[in-house]
Every structure is written in C-alpha cells, then in structure tokens.
Amino acid sequence: MSAFVIQTKNLTKTYKKQAAVKNVNLEIQKGDIYGFLGPNGAGKTTTIRMLLGLIQPTRGSIELFGKELKKNKMDILRRTGSLVEYPSYYGHLSAVENLEAIRRITGGPVARIAEVLDIVQLTKDAKRAVKGYSLGMKQRLGIAAALLNNPELLILDEPTNGLDPSGIQEIRELIKNMPRQFGITVLVSSHLLSEVEQMAEKVGIIREGELVFQGRMEELVSKASSGFRLAVSEPEEAMGRVLDMGLDGRIKGQLLELGPLTDAQIAKLVRHLVEQQHDIYRVEEKRKSLEDIFMQMVGEGSAS
C-alpha cells in the first residue's frame, strides 16, 4: 500500500479532441489539507469528478487509499465524502430528510444525522424545507452530507463559492478542524489563493488542464512574495544600513522597497534597524496575485 490517499498518474480527460485535463499527477498524503487551485475552467472540477468515478478518464490511473478506483469503486466511495461544486439537495425536503435520503443508501446509524447537523450548526433549522435556506446554509448542509458516512477522505469542490465573508470564514474553520478532530484527509478546490492559503498545507495548481505546481504552501507563498516595503523613520539613513547589510533595495517616497527576503533575513534586518534607533511603522510584503504566479509558472514551464 502506498503512502498516498490520492494518487493519480498521467490522468487525462479529452472532450472532442480537446484535453480538459492533461497528464495530472496528484499526490495527496494522509492527514493533508490539500488545496487544489486554478482559475475557472482549468480542469479542477473535471479532475474531481474523475476522482469520484462520476466521469471516466480518457487515459491514466487513479488510486485512492492505495487501491485502483475502477476495481474498488464501492469500497473507495464508502470511505469518501464529497461536495461537488454547488450543493445538491432536494429542496422540498428538510435537512433531516435530505440526510436521511443519503443515509438510507449508505447505511449507518440514524443518530449520525443529528451529529453531522451539529458539526455544521444546522440543528436549529433541521426541520425546515431546504429551499428556504440561505446559500451558506445549503453549503453547510452539503458538507454535512459529505461527513455523514464518517469518511476518511473529504473531497470538497469550491465549498466557499458564492458565500459571503462570514460564510467563508465558517466553512474555513470547519475544514481546518477536519484533520485535527477527525483525522480526515481533505482535498479542497478553489480559484482563490487567499482562500486556500489559510487552511491548506499543500497545494496543487492546475492551469489549462495541466498541473503546473505541486508542493508545500510555504514554497508557493515564497514564490508569491515579490518583495517587502518598510515604512521607517529617517528612510534615507535606513536605506544606507540596508545596503550595508548586503541587501538590495531603493527608496520610493518615504518607503524602502526591498526585494524578496526569507523570514530570517527580514527578522535580522528589522532587529538591526531597531538597534540603530529607527522607528519602524510598517513592514509590508508585496504579493503577486494568483494569476501572476500562474503566468510566472507557465512562463517557466515553456522556457525549459
């Protein structure tokens, strides 16, 4: 058995000669929160649908829990919970009835329905018809449905899409707790880096069907950083000290603009300036948007 909960090899899906997903090799370890990033239409949902056996790959292999999906589909799906894009629900039924409709298929105790409703904080509204729910509540119901069967792996496709900031916050907290509280591995997709950044330890970036980056979040964050801006007292003098330390930079207005620095470098610099009696008002990191990083990565890809 391999160490990966999800492993795909050269996963490809072609629609009418156009490849929606090209040679994707995902590697997700047990206990990870894996952020699956990409702009709309990049192939995230197609990949996720293939992982759940909803659509057939044109080429390549998928292994979940170290077993081939095709041959062990029932066993794998029994250990997996999912929410694909917008939540699916039966509007005329209440939250409890919606979950009961799923429970009748998956088996499991009736008491679990109350448990998952409690986890997503819907207990109060459990008896109302779902069509009257807010989008955030429907999304939470979708997560409750995904959790119903005590999954070891949770696959969430754009779980915060269309939510307001407080809804996003709620879902994020919910997801962050999954590995800690329940030992669940989570794959969560999004088109916003900022959203995934706060919960995922590992990320994969897909662009036009190709996985252009896969690695730890810190690696990506360091790529996203394009430098620092410091607001200090006596900027000209401070700039001299920066140059003395062997760092690159220039003055722009009252600010010092520096290139990308490691955590250790920036700490050392700040300490040095403080020791030299400079007041430090602000240390800002200049960051590129996700789209910029995509462009950068794709640029690198075609250069090599």
Partner: peptide, 18 residues
C-alpha cells in the same frame, strides 16, 4: 426531475452504490 432539478446526480452517484 427530482434528481435533475438541482443536479443531484453528482451527489447520488458519488455515494457507495452501484
């Protein structure tokens, strides 16, 4: 239509049932 209306197929068929 019960399944089509809100695209519940993707949820239903991702459950452990053939």
């Amino acid at each position: 239509n019960v399944e089509h209306q809100l695209s519940s197929w993707k949820q239903l068929l991702a459950l452990p049932i053939s």
